[in-house]
Each structure stands twice: as structure tokens, then as C-alpha cells.
Write a protein that binds this DNA or RNA. Structure first.
Length: 672
DNA sequence: GCCGTTTTCGGCCCGACTGTTTTCAGTCG
């Protein structure tokens, strides 16, 4: 069995929370399980490592009970409490609870009264009219539930940030054009730039809610209206995505924005902090609590711009117009949305050690992209032109290597020919953009690289990635990846976990070990910014930062417009607490090249002089006896099939060199 | 179950909306 990952252990706690809720357990115990689940899923290191080191016990929300359960889970794969909870109720109830409107009480009710224990049985019961006869249920509830089951089947699960954000921004733009609306912001997980999104939250500031609600429901994207009250309403877009709108008075906008941005855990922590200071925070603002715990201030003043009763005395309201005021009321500075997960950001804000998060403008280059030489749709020239438009100083062209035959990966001959083209292009651009001759080289099953180290040594930037043999056991996969990094010619591990959001899980890889190896070897970890990947994920970015491992943000672009996907990489980097100094391509090109020189001098000095760009630098100190890598000595690598030495002027098929739009088909040659 | 300006017990964030009720439970965020 592969080692349990943090997410696996977290899932057990999440399920214990759900099952405890179904059994009407202590709500605080339930919350505690959920808090632990979240903490485990976002640990900076593997849970077993932290348990052994005693650092797990220091994680907020983790107490003695959790430590005992985690220990049991790591040893046996499960814990007795979880098993007991599962034994008490059918597993199908958990899935039923994921249907909109089916909370623990209703789920339990249909199970005990009707014996319903799966989504299918629930649907049948509703169709036969049994549900409407239950206490607190009726015809309307039943009809609503049938629709919810349909939506559940059609659109189960979360969608990628890259799919949700553009839809959210379009709605926000449309709402900004509505007369009377003063501010519009996306809130929720989308504003926190979580990698997947359950629904969209849109917040509007207006003196009157009616016109905003009308305009929202009339948007062309809107399919059907799920619910509509005086100040908030929920709709399904035609795309299936749910959007919640909330209209709020301008003087409360900051409080509402903070509240609806979440996360839930962050909000609870902030409100708890407020309570200890004799304050009450709600989406309507910060209020001074009455003496003896008696609340005198209330939200009623703002609930209904249409004219509901005014319950709150004006002097009770302290502030609420901006988020800064909310944070200031509990004695801390502004916390960027991407950090609001109650993962130490409040403590960091209090101690004045919040990171200065990286922004798009800090990026000085892009380190991962493909061209028509393999499976990209644009020429290197077109990529370069787009890069210049984005304000970059440099970029790396990193087409696939030969093993990736489906992409027409480059062999050594074509790689050399491409190098010629890139050199010429760089010269032609006259210093406005530096072009790194790079490659995304496959890591083969045993950890060899897909091209000879001698050929890779002559490049400026090498990304090494796994594209095959995804199902190796963890130990083999880990050894495979580390072996590739030990070659000395690899600058960066591409999309380290291999996951595709919503499509494919990460392969079994001990990322802990890999990140530590990268630190020892001077290799960067990629943060692949393509929205399907976002790999490394944010928790591992944070771990890499703490260990001093450089992150290289690459878009993995296959078209010019993909270069703008950097925004998703930046979003993930920010969620990982990264600052410009943590990101390789937020720094100068010279640093990137120097790191390569330094590492090659240390790990493979015999290859160093073969790199034209590195040879241009001051000659490396005469290579003494080759130092051993920090990790166990590499086994001798099997000799590659004989390859001709890279010809100076290879007789390659017509390269797309100067043509700005070479024929697509010409670039899809198979390797020899 | 966790935690401490409440520290080994007692408290734990706050409000809107719906549907079913005649005052509120359940769900959601």
C-alpha cells in the first residue's frame, strides 16, 4: 500500500465530522473534526514527519485526541472512532448530504422514517411523493429536492478556478454598469483564489437593493433563480455554476466583503478575537457589545435598504466601510484574501510578519512554454512578442523531448536546430528579450533523462518532468525523480505532483523527500501556472519556501495567450505565502544562469564547458575530484543508445526559424 | 474536541432565507 498522504488522513477526519453531524453529535466536536481536517490537508510537511518531530502537536486545533487518532490511522489505515461511526449508518447517507438542501437533520429524517439510504432511493421517494408527508416537509420542499438531485448529478463537485474566475469577472463587470451600484467585488473562494470553486459570490454596494437584484436576475448568463430575498439571491448560470448575490449598504461594504470572502475558519477566528475584545463582528460591521454580554446593537439597521425596522442604536456601530477597518478593530493590519485560511495569518499579522506577497508585475520572465517545434500552436517569435508585451526581460523555450512522441518531442538533432533558431531570434530582437534555450525533458521510468546529459548541458534552462509510468509505487517514483535531479543538468522539476485538477490525482510521490532533495541539489521546484495543474500546490509552495527551495513559475504555455495564465500561478504562489525573493523568475536572469553554473560545477563539472552560455561566464574553478551529491551516490546510468554528436549545422528539415507563421504540420515531426 | 484576558471547566461566530408553521427548525455561507 502506498503511504497515506495528508489528504487521506484529512478525509477521515472530514468524514468523522459528517458522520458525527448525522448522528446529532456535539456541534463543537464536529467543528473540531473539521478544523483538524483542514489543518491536516494544508500541513507544510507530511503528517508522519510532523507527528514524529512533535510539530503536529503545535498545530492550532490539534490536541491529544487528534494525535492519538492520527497515530492510529498512520499505523493501521483507519481509526476505531471512524470505524464505529461508519458502522452506525449506511455510507450512502454521506453522499446524500452533499445534495443542496439535504443537511444532516433531513438526511437522518428520510433514513429513519423512510429507510432511504442513497441518492437513488431519495429520488424515488420524492417521485412517489413520500417526502412531502414527512414532518417539516411539503410539496415545495419535495419539488425543490428533485431539482437539486438533478443539479447534483449534472454538476457534482467543484470547478477549477480557471473556469470560474472568468465567469465571475464577467458578472462583476456587468453589475458595475448597473445604475445605483457603487462597488462590486467577487468574494468567497474565488477571491481567495482557491484552486477549485464551489460557487461564485458577488457583492454589491448600493443604497437600494431592488434594482441590483433585478439587474442580476436578468443577466443573460443566468439560467434559473434558486432563491430571492430582499438583499440576497442565488441563481444557477446556464453553465451550471451557482452564483450568490448579496446587496449591502455602502457603510457596511468592507465588513460584508470580509465576511463573504471567508474562509469560514478565518472568520470564526476573527470573530472570536473580536468577542474577546468586547466587540461583535458581523457582515454589517463592528459593534460594541452591551454589558453583561447583553447585545444591544443589532444588524437590523441595515438588513433592509427597502425600509425594515431600525433596531440598532446608531452609536453602537463602530465601523464597516472598509476591510482595513475590520482588521484594525481587532488590532491587526490588512490580511490579503489569499492568506485568509486561519493557517497562521492572524498570528503573523499580529506579530507584523505577514509576507509581502508576490504580484504579477514582479515576474521578469516565463520559464516554461512550448512552440510549434512540438505541440505548441505558436512560433518562438510569436511567444517572444507576447512576452515583450507582458513586460518580460527573458523567457525560456522548453519544448518536449523525444519520448513524448504524441507531442513530436525533440531529439538532439532537432534540439540543436531549434537552438540555432532561438539564437538568431534573440540577436534579431536586439536585447529587448533574452531567450533561454531550454527543454522540458522527460524523466524516464528509472530516473534517466530522455536526452544525454551532454546534450542537456549545452542548454540554458532544463525543466525535467514525468510524463509516463504514472503508476509506480511511491518509493520507486520518489527515487526516480530524485535521481533525475541528481544529474546536475536539471534546473527545475516540472509540475512536481503530476495532478490534473478534477481529472487525475497526483502520482504516488514523497514530495517531502523530493523538496528536500531539491534543496540539497540546488534545483528549483516549478509552480506550473496552467489552471489545470497549479502544481506545486499552495501548501507545498509554503513548505518549499520554508526550506529555502526556489520556486520557478512557468505557464506551460502552448499558445501565446496562455502566457497570461501566469495570473493563476501568481494566485497559487500568494496562497503559498511566496514573496518575490522566493520566486526565481521574479529575479534577474543572471541569478538563474549562475545557479545553473554553480550546480553543474558541483554535480557534473565535466559537462560544464559544453554550455555556450555558461562558458561565456568566468571559467569555473578547475574541476577537482567530483564531489558527491548530497544524496546517496548515483548508480551508474545505463549508456544511452549511440547518438550522433550534435552537429554544428544539422541537416534538419525546414525549421520554422524566421517565418512568423510556419505551417503547423511542419512542426509535428516524429522523432527519428 | 480544543483551549485559556474563562487556564483543568465552561464556552465555543453570526445572520439570511425557506418552508412549514403560527414561532421556528433547518440549511447555507
Amino acid at each position: 500500500m502506498n503511504r497515506l498522504e495528508n489528504a487521506d488522513v484529512a478525509a477521515i477526519f472530514q468524514e468523522m465530522a459528517d458522520l458525527t453531524e448525522l448522528q446529532d453529535g456535539n456541534p463543537f466536536r464536529i467543528r473540531s473534526f473539521r478544523r483538524v481536517a483542514q489543518a491536516l490537508a494544508t500541513l507544510p510537511e507530511h503528517v508522519a514527519t510532523m507527528l514524529a518531530a512533535g510539530t503536529l502537536a503545535k498545530v492550532p486545533g490539534v490536541g491529544e485526541g487528534t494525535l492519538t487518532r492520527v497515530r492510529e490511522i498512520l499505523e493501521t489505515g483507519d481509526c476505531s472512532d471512524h470505524a464505529a461511526l461508519r458502522a452506525a449508518l449506511p455510507a450512502g447517507l454521506l453522499e446524500m448530504m452533499r445534495i443542496e438542501g439535504m443537511g444532516p437533520k433531513t438526511t437522518k429524517l428520510v433514513y429513519t422514517q423512510l429507510g432511504v439510504k442513497s441518492v437513488d432511493e431519495l429520488e424515488a421517494a420524492a417521485q412517489q411523493g413520500h417526502l412531502a408527508k414527512l414532518p417539516r416537509m411539503g410539496e415545495k420542499s419535495q419539488a425543490k429536492l428533485l431539482k437539486a438531485i438533478e443539479a447534483f448529478r449534472r454538476h457534482s463537485g467543484r470547478i477549477r478556478l480557471g473556469d470560474a474566475l472568468p465567469q465571475g469577472l464577467a458578472i462583476a463587470d456587468a453589475m458595475r454598469a448597473v445604475p445605483g451600484i457603487l462597488h462590486v467585488e467577487l468574494a468567497g473562494s474565488c477571491r481567495r483564489r482557491q484552486e477549485t470553486i464551489g460557487d461564485l459570490d458577488v457583492l454589491c454596494a448600493a443604497e437600494e437593493s431592488g434594482p441590483a437584484m433585478d439587474a442580476f436576475c436578468a443577466l443573460p448568463q443566468v439560467g434559473d433563480v434558486i432563491a430571492r430575498g430582499e438583499t440576497q439571491c442565488s441563481v444557477h448560470l446556464a453553465s451550471g455554476l451557482q452564483v450568490d448575490l448579496r446587496v449591502i449598504a455602502p457603510k457596511c461594504f468592507g465588513a460584508a466583503l470580509h465576511y463573504f470572502t471567508g474562509s469560514k475558519m478565518h472568520n470564526i477566528a476573527i470573530r472570536d478575537r473580536a468577542k474577546r475584545r468586547g466587540l461583535k463582528i458581523s457582515e454589517y460591521g463592528v459593534f460594541k457589545e452591551g454589558r453583561d454580554g447583553e447585545e444591544r446593537g443589532g444588524p437590523g439597521e441595515f438588513t433592509s435598504p427597502g425600509g425594515a425596522a431600525v433596531k440598532a442604536a446608531p452609536e453602537e456601530f463602530l465601523c464597516g466601510a472598509t476591510e482595513e477597518e475590520i482588521f484594525a478593530s481587532v488590532g491587526i493590519g490588512y490580511i490579503p484574501p489569499e492568506l485568509r485560511e486561519n493557517l497562521g495569518e492572524i498570528e503573523a499579522a499580529e506579530e507584523g510578519r505577514l509576507p509581502s506577497l508576490i504580484e504579477e508585475r514582479h515576474l521578469r520572465g516565463d520559464l516554461h512554454m512550448h512552440t510549434q517545434w512540438t505541440d505548441g500552436t505558436a512560433s518562438a517569435r510569436e511567444m517572444a512578442e507576447q512576452a515583450i508585451e507582458l513586460g518580460y526581460e527573458y523567457l525560456a523555450i522548453t519544448d518536449h523531448s523525444r519520448s513524448l512522441t504524441v507531442a513530436g518531442g525533440l531529439d538532439e538533432v532537432r534540439l540543436a536546430a531549434q537552438g540555432e533558431e532561438l539564437r538568431a531570434l534573440e540577436a534579431e530582437l536586439g536585447g529587448s528579450l533574452r531567450i533561454l534555450r531550454g527543454i522540458e525533458v522527460d524523466i524516464l521510468a528509472e530516473g534517466d533523462l530522455d536526452l544525454r546529459p551532454e546534450a542537456l548541458a549545452g542548454l540554458d534552462w532544463v525543466v525535467a518532468s514525468v510524463h509516463s509510468h504514472f503508476n509506480l509505487p511511491e518509493e520507486k517514483m520518489t527515487a526516480r525523480v530524485i535521481r533525475a535531479l541528481e544529474s546536475g543538468v536539471v534546473d527545475c522539476l516540472g509540475h512536481p505532483s503530476g495532478r490534473l485538477l478534477g481529472q487525475r490525482d497526483a502520482y504516488a510521490l514523497n514530495l517531502d523527500k523530493v523538496i528536500r532533495a531539491a534543496r540539497d541539489l540546488g534545483v528549483a521546484m516549478e509552480l506550473n501556472a496552467f489552471p489545470d495543474r497549479l502544481d506545486l500546490d499552495a501548501p507545498h509552495c509554503r513548505q518549499a519556501k520554508e526550506l529555502g527551495v526556489a520556486i520557478a513559475i512557468g505557464t506551460d504555455s502552448h499558445a501565446t495567450w496562455h502566457l497570461k495564465k501566469r495570473e493563476y500561478g501568481i494566485a497559487t504562489a500568494r496562497r503559498g505565502w511566496l514573496e518575490p525573493s522566493d520566486v526565481l523568475n521574479a529575479g534577474p536572469l543572471e541569478t538563474i544562469l549562475e545557479r545553473r553554473r554553480e550546480r553543474m560545477a558541483r554535480l557534473c563539472p565535466e559537462l560544464l564547458t559544453t554550455s555556450p552560455r555558461t562558458a561565456a561566464a568566468p571559467p569555473a574553478a578547475p574541476a577537482p575530484a567530483r564531489p558527491e551529491p548530497a544524496k546517496p551516490a548515483k548508480p551508474a546510468k545505463p549508456a544511452k543508445p549511440a547518438k550522433p554528436a550534435t552537429p554544428a549545422k544539422p541537416a534538419t528539415p525546414s525549421t520554422p526559424a524566421r517565418s512568423s507563421k510556419p505551417a503547423r504540420s511542419g512542426s509535428k515531426r516524429k522523432p527519428a
